[in-house]
């Protein structure tokens, strides 16, 4: 089992190295347009340069801070709303069509409106990220709450368990895997929302670097930003995995 895991890791790393190697060779011999596609070595130099001269760490920290705030708010708000919907099902029936309609609206379209309402600040970026994740989150957590084992629910009813006891002993723990999956999807969705927000209003952050690179036609900078984002996204995903392992329930 362990050898299998190591083998998979080696193959995954090999795929990355082969991809980077082919990309480097193709750009070195001008088989691909280096202005558009740049090359791994140029991107690496760009990232080192950003680190030395343009405070890359600060840009990363700003994007990370916005992502973590938006992510935490999204989980907290959606959890509370899902519990309210579970406790008062008629509220869910009333609001479900509105949630579906709002969720299907392209969020970029409401970006300018968010900026006008909340100003050209970090608040708008966080609201932008929330607008992408919140409704999906509410729906998936609520769905997890409603799909509980009917025998366990009947048992708690037969024991005259209070609403709080049902939530504590059954509803929330049984939605554990749904909540974890929702966290995994959410972290990357939040990052997408933050970057979209940074495209629109920011003066710092990885989204700002990408949009700046596009404006000055420095596509190496754009690709560097994208690669940094991929690394951030992967690290955040790893954090959720560690959280999952630490809190693993036998569900």
């Amino acid at each position: 089992m362990k050898t299998n895991k190591i083998f998979i890791k080696i193959v995954q790393l090999l795929i990355v190295f082969i991809f980077l190697f082919i990309w480097e060779i193709l750009s070195k011999y001008n088989v691909i347009n280096t202005f558009i596609f740049s090359s791994p070595s140029k991107i690496l130099k760009c990232i080192i340069n950003l680190y030395k001269n343009n405070n890359l760490v600060n840009h990363i920290l700003i994007t990370l801070k916005e992502t973590i705030i938006a992510f935490s708010l999204s989980i907290l708000i959606s959890f509370i709303i899902a519990i309210i919907f579970y406790e008062i099902p008629i509220l869910f029936n009333i609001f479900e069509p509105f949630l579906t309609i709002i969720n299907s609206t392209p969020k970029v379209a409401i970006g300018p409106l968010i900026i006008i309402i909340f100003g050209a600040s970090q608040n708008s970026i966080i609201i932008m990220a929330l607008s992408i994740t919140l409704i999906l989150n509410i729906l998936s957590i609520y769905n997890g709450f409603t799909n509980v084992n009917k025998y366990l629910l009947k048992l708690l009813n037969s024991l005259n368990a209070s609403r709080f006891q049902k939530l504590k002993y059954l509803i929330v723990p049984s939605a554990y895997s749904v909540i974890i999956n929702s966290l995994k999807i959410n972290i990357s969705m939040t990052l997408i929302g933050v970057i979209m927000g940074e495209f629109l209003v920011s003066k710092a952050g990885i989204g700002y670097l990408i949009i700046y690179g596009t404006q000055v036609f420095d596509l190496t900078l754009v690709l560097s930003g994208i690669i940094i984002l991929m690394i951030i996204s992967y690290i955040l995903y790893l954090f959720i995995n560690i959280f999952e392992r630490k809190t693993k329930k036998h569900s």
Binding site: Y151, L152, L155, L170, P173, H250
Partner: peptide
């Protein structure tokens, strides 16, 4: 004070 045992053992997996 009624004890109810169901068709399933209804144990909490976690």
């Amino acid at each position: 004070n009624i004890g109810y045992m169901l068709q399933e053992p209804a144990l909490f997996p976690w």
